[in-house]
Design a protein around this nucleic acid. Structure first.
Lengths: 155, 155
DNA sequence: CTATAAACCATGATATTCCATAGATATCCA
DNA sequence: TGGATATCTATGGAATATCATGGTTTATAG
């Protein structure tokens, strides 16, 4: 299982190319697909990145729903429909599609932020603010890490 | 198992020809039949696309219903009855039959939407609305992906 | 023979690969 | 320890390949 840690700011060129941090790339070496899966965050003005095999596991879990159920359809349309599959080039870069760049309001630089099994891509400015806000929320609500994380696509 | 991701809008010419996205085509390389199976969606004004081998697994799943039950009969009639097997031409295109084009109300363009193990074909406009609706349903009903061990796709 | 469908080509646009360089980091040996 | 050398990383630009798409020719069927 991939583990994405720490954050790094890299440059986004006019073609939309950007280097994936080397520390993230080593987490991808054992993946069946040499690249990442990106889509728009539901919660923030940023992008979310996953490994191919993680998407596969989501797909398998989704198959536990009745094949033509409404629930299955809603989830699949929302998750897989908006995701894009970005291969790494020979130099460890991906090309972000224009609509994703706009969604995350990225300029010349973008921050890769490790989040464990996933990572996020932020405009550096916005991420600073987000981090401040996150710290405040944690203090205010006395948040801790749950013993066992039951996750969903909403928080 | 094939994994269809992301969505892409392609052009439908007057002969009913349309390119299957290249990223979808690579998922078909290991299939016994070089093409896709398409039929009318029961839930939406769109078409559903499967691989040949996945159709086989659907057939098996249908057998889990009582073999002569009404449900089995209805599903089988609606799925297998309207399904067509569309081979890829040398350039990676399929030819959509006219009745399917009309059913999905397709015009000059059509969106291929990855849904994990299957995909859908939509009029681009209609899919936009559908995606909004899907997101609302997810929030309203608090839908999550059935968990295996841990982690959702959002925080 | 005619109409219809299938295979075949041609071509811009786009995406991918390849190469070069500079800076940072790590390695090695005296 | 220090300094030289090699390696890795990020980044820019150019060459190359692929993709989507329209048209044309060839096969097929009635």
């Amino acid at each position: 299982m991939a583990l994405f840690l720490s954050s790094q700011i890299n440059r986004l060129d006019k073609k939309g190319r950007i280097s994936v941090p080397a520390s993230f790339r080593v987490e991808l070496t054992n993946e069946p697909f040499r690249g990442v899966v990106i889509f728009k965050s539901n919660a923030h003005e940023c992008l979310e990145g996953f490994t191919w095999s993680y998407m596969q596991s989501i797909s398998e879990r989704l198959d536990d729903f009745n094949l033509f159920s409404e629930e299955q359809d809603d989830l699949a349309a929302s998750i897989f429909g908006s995701a894009v599959q970005l291969p790494l080039d020979g130099d460890g870069r991906i090309i972000l599609p224009q609509n994703l760049i706009e969604f995350a309001d990225l300029d010349e630089k973008a921050a890769f932020v490790g989040m464990g099994t996933k990572f996020q891509i932020w405009d550096p400015e916005k991420f600073n603010q987000r981090q401040k806000q996150a710290r405040q929320n944690i203090q205010k609500n006395n948040l801790t890490i749950p013993q066992k994380n039951k996750g969903g696509i909403n928080d």
